[in-house]
Design a protein around this nucleic acid. Structure first.
Lengths: 233, 233
DNA sequence: AAATTAATATGATATATATCAGCTAATACC
DNA sequence: GGTATTAGCTGATATATATCATATTAATTT
């Protein structure tokens, strides 16, 4: 596998959830992975894995970014998170019914490495630290979902959009200013509100000098105010 | 450990998430658990574990029921689920920061068996099926949380309350009629709405002949209608 | 049994947010 | 290069749900 430096994650109330599985393999196991793995290039907008389809491989992102979408039965979608190197696209189908429980779409041109899920399972069974690391990773996922549940049920639009902006700036782009391929409607889906509401709330933040944006360029001007809005709901 | 028959779970879009860890132990491991474990009796309303406190034991419910609550910073609570034998009260603090990420409160008089978390960790490390089972369990938890997220963000009050009633009848009491120690405000917290809204929506269902209730007694009259309300949102 | 408290219920009102409609700017296509 | 199409934006309106106030009933306590 490619290099795999764990990154620090500053998001409020959530601990670092980067998976470092592949760091824990011994030479033999690493060779098995390298013999088995293959790399696929996705263009921006292409679907990497589709919800409900069979989970046959665990993916490791080498380059680019992927949107993780929860699709509802009526066409609604929640944009759960954005993954990038060294994140793993696996999902809760592993070791259950081996189906994908989310759709992953390339946000930009993205390179991902496919590892057969049966090999991955063998690694879990044969390598205790690998298994323990996976358990820790799943638990951190659960913690993040608890936070997301609280956020969505207890916070109003301002708070939810503030959370999204903080997440993008802190975790995804790691910069107070960033140019993104996310559309307004992606930002709305991340914050669980309509398109129009997201646009209106963004404009409101801009009018109040909290952020600036033009097209796909965004800049966090008053991070502390944004954090405060997030806290107040 | 006590007997541990897996139960079938009929809930929409969610697979059986009963943990069957302790079935997978060999004699030696079972002896270690039995030598280490101790049983505590909780009266209805007593706190079993408190959010943010140290996770020192994994609990196995022998008798009774426990409400699992996510507490927000501003006093808001989400009632996530209700656990009963043979459910395990562990939580995502295991193998991460060893803190509790929810509060568990005895809904009725409840008996739980405490297993030291270090012993539990040793079991995970020394017993592959046990570890794989834990991973499957965590993934099912994640699947349930995905469903919960979709439910809360895409469904209106009718749909959310219908989900709660179906859950209580199918999973918790396994009977179309039941007497519960859950208050109206518990039901509201399960459905993520205010007290008043829960009461109003319950009355609405009653007026339409979908359910009947009086005090703490509930009866599902038209399960199919309820399921339809849940689907429509 | 009376008195206090808490839980449940109901109505009136406020508010957050979605929906609908129209409009502008940017991008894709012929 | 001009037209078509999509994404972004704005305003008016509708609706779901929370909030507040106030009964009513049930559960405790005295």
């Amino acid at each position: 596998m490619e290099s795999n430096k764990p990154k620090t994650k500053n998001r409020e109330n959530s601990c670092d959830s980067k998976p470092v599985f592949f760091n824990l393999l011994n030479d033999e196991q690493l060779n098995a992975v390298n013999a088995n793995r293959f790399v696929v290039n996705f263009k921006a907008g292409e679907t990497i894995v589709k919800q409900s389809s069979a989970l046959t491989h665990i993916l490791y992102i080498i380059q680019g970014k992927a949107k993780i979408l929860l699709e509802g039965s009526e066409g609604q979608t929640i944009l759960l998170k954005i993954l990038k190197q060294p994140d793993v696209i696996g999902g809760p189908g592993f070791n259950t019914d081996y189906r994908h429980y989310f759709t992953a779409v390339a946000l930009e041109d993205t390179k991902a490495c496919f590892v057969d899920v049966n090999l991955f399972k063998r690694l879990v069974l044969s390598n205790q630290p690998f298994a323990m690391n996976l358990i820790a990773y799943l638990n951190r996922e659960i913690i993040n979902l608890y936070d997301k549940l609280k956020c969505l049920t207890h916070k109003h639009m301002n708070g939810r959009l503030a959370d999204t902006l903080i997440y993008l700036s802190n975790d995804v782009y790691q910069n107070p200013e960033f140019t993104t391929k996310l559309s307004r409607s992606d930002i709305a889906n991340m914050s669980c509100m309509t398109n129009e509401s997201a646009i209106r709330t963004l404009k409101d933040f801009k009018d109040n000098g909290i952020i600036d944006f033009k097209g796909d360029y965004f800049k966090i001007l008053k991070r502390d105010v944004l954090i405060n809005i997030s806290k107040k709901g």
